[in-house]
Design a protein around this nucleic acid. Structure first.
Lengths: 215, 215
DNA sequence: CGCTAATCTAGAACAAGTTTCAGACTTGAT
DNA sequence: ATCAAGTCTGAAACTTGTTCTAGATTAGCG
């Protein structure tokens, strides 16, 4: 949000894609400490509570180093989200929700994720606000989060090769997911309403699935 | 984004609801100058270009006064959006898009709005980012924007008394609208993709319309 | 081991959002 | 017209994100 005037290039997409010069052990450890501190601070007061100086201090790293690892607060929080998403995806893989239709399974999956977020609303606040506030300079990282989310949804649908139509439906589901979370986090929608809206949007899946029969 | 620690109450929902102690003529004029300056600066560099000191200077108002009228940058930009939305709704009322189905009409309406935003992408950036970044302290104002948007969509549907199901569909459409705009603004989705997603989500309308025939 | 480039640290400095304050100006009611 | 209450102004101060710098440390290499 604040920035001199420049804000471009030079940034190495860290952990977005597992390439880039590989980190030494100590560097990996630093990165981990930073992400941990970030999540911890976020779990308390949400977005505002994640203050770069505090993150640096908590993770025993100089401010300049923090900025070398994550070029902005938004980058840091989006990376934090990537981190959490990986957990989540792992967890979901183990016991995937059951359901007759794809729509049902996706809705159940998202509601499960939603319940997880409810347990740490402040953390959710920090991550989701960062995600939707991110500007172009964070696109690669945000895209990675998006891909991860898409993977989760497609997993729940049980699809390998989605049609373009289905991909659009999935995108719409993700849009709804993010935006519904925002309205819930800012107290403008109840949990029940979020649930209903998720179920509503998931109906699109059946709509775009020419699955069973055809001419 | 920056703020001491407090951030509550004391704020008068200005123009969100047309009550509150009515403004004098000069006050109304100041308010208008501020909103104009805000939109103008936003039209140039987007969110970042709307700097409170500059807004104050452009609108010939002291910084403190600016903050009395709009308690934060986010409040200011959300108010700017309300302002623009009113225009838009007025414009749309005059020549409402034609179409067989409600879904078609809504999609056309949103695409028309989208084209309007494309003409001022920076302004769109400032408004939409502010809207989705807004925290609880801006809820009343954001809610007002949401109501206005809902009104536009219901107008396009030609509905007076929507069912709860339809309201959910409308909310999902709004979610998609906001989130799709964000992805477009941050360069992660093409205009074509936004169009497709809008059309996709609008299909929900037909799905929730038990309109024509019944038992 | 000894060197060099890269990385890290502490801390100052800067930018922009927000708050505060003393004094000048308006407004509304008497 | 006059007074009290409420507004507005200009300027300084404070907060937090971000950048910069000079000097230590570390990593990789011969």
């Amino acid at each position: 949000m604040n920035a001199k005037v420049n804000k471009v290039a030079k940034v190495e997409a860290r952990a977005a894609v597992p390439d880039s010069p590989p980190l030494t052990e100590r560097q990996e450890a630093r990165r981990r400490r930073i992400l941990h501190a970030s999540a911890q601070l976020a779990s308390r007061g949400g977005f505002d509570a994640v203050q770069m100086r505090e993150v640096a201090e908590s993770s025993q790293v100089a401010l300049g180093t923090l900025y070398r690892y994550f070029p902005s607060k938004i980058h840091l929080l989006v990376a934090t989200m990537q981190d959490q998403l990986e957990h989540m995806h792992g967890t979901l893989r183990k016991k995937p929700p059951q359901g007759e239709t794809a729509a049902e399974r996706v809705a159940k999956t998202l509601m499960r994720a939603f319940r997880a977020l409810q347990r740490e609303p402040h953390l959710a606040d920090a991550m989701v606000r960062a995600l939707t506030f991110a500007d172009r300079s964070v696109s690669p990282e945000v895209d990675q989060v998006s891909r991860q989310t898409t993977a989760i949804v497609l997993d729940a649908m049980g699809l390998e090769h989605p049609t373009p139509e289905q991909l659009s439906a999935v995108r719409v589901i993700e849009h709804t997911w993010h935006s519904a979370l925002i309205t819930w986090l800012s107290g403008r929608a109840s949990i029940a309403q979020v649930k209903i809206d998720i179920e509503t949007v998931c109906r699109l899946i059946d709509l775009t699935a020419p699955a069973s029969e055809g001419p």
